[in-house]
């Protein structure tokens, strides 16, 4: 699904991490932890090709990202759901139009019923016609999640998806991701919230990756 082979990344001030070699299998559920500035967001960006590694290779869905053309990268991203911490939207489009974007930009049909079901599933039925600037933090996170999963992605990547949410809303969002994972989607969530990891570990098999001291380590036994 996602494979790192001797990957290092450096913004110019020394490598954030180096020699990272790991695989995220189909249907797996991974957390990515580490202190602020350790490189969690960078790791995720490497996963979906927003960044090219300084060294090594990243393969996504069996394809080497370094060798992908721009169109191939775009087509690959159509199979990935991405939830950013800051949840960027097209502010002049409604929630339902934003959620449907992954389908509509690629010419795939958008079923009104499916869209309504999805919005109901994330608890946004009442906000379907709202504009993103009018949404609360939790509603924005759920809108971003709905947009990330509407195209039935094979991989879901989320960067601090509960960063601005209270515990109840965080649990609710995690439950949605767990349900998605049970349907076969591989999930990778970057977070430093250990309670969240513990909550998920009680429900699905989970592995934890930790970025520390410039290395990506497999952790989890101690959690």
């Amino acid at each position: 699904m996602i494979a790192f082979q001797n990957v290092a990344h450096d913004y110019g001030g020394g490598p954030l991490f180096r020699d990272a070699t790991l695989k995220l299998e189909t249907g797996s559920f991974h957390f990515l932890t580490g202190p602020s500035g350790a490189g969690k967001s960078t790791f995720l960006k490497l996963c979906y090709g927003e960044l090219i590694p300084s060294e090594g290779t990243v393969s996504l869905l069996g394809q080497d990202m370094n060798a992908m053309s721009r169109d191939e990268l775009a087509r690959t991203r159509q199979k990935i759901g991405i939830v950013h911490q800051d949840c960027q939207f097209l502010d002049h489009l409604t929630v339902e139009q934003n959620v449907a974007l992954p389908l509509s930009v690629t010419g795939r049909p958008v079923s009104g019923d499916n869209l309504a079901d999805l919005l109901a599933w994330v608890g946004l039925s009442g906000q379907a016609r709202s504009l993103p600037p009018t949404l609360s933090g939790g509603e924005r996170q759920r809108t971003a999640l709905a947009r990330a999963i509407i195209a039935s992605p094979e991989v879901l990547l989320a960067d601090e998806p509960t960063g601005n949410l209270d515990w109840d809303m965080s649990q609710r969002l995690m439950s949605l991701m767990i349900e998605l994972n049970r349907m076969g989607t591989a999930v990778l969530i970057a977070t430093h919230d250990l309670n969240l990891i513990r909550f998920v570990k009680t429900q699905v098999p989970t592995r934890v990756l930790r970025i520390a001291r410039g290395e990506v380590q497999t952790a989890g036994a101690e959690l």
Binding site: Q88, L101, P102
Partner: peptide, 12 residues
């Protein structure tokens, strides 16, 4: 940025 994120190609 949003369009790139959801897989839009350059020509779109």
């Amino acid at each position: 940025s949003v369009l790139r994120l959801v897989g839009a190609q350059d020509r779109f």
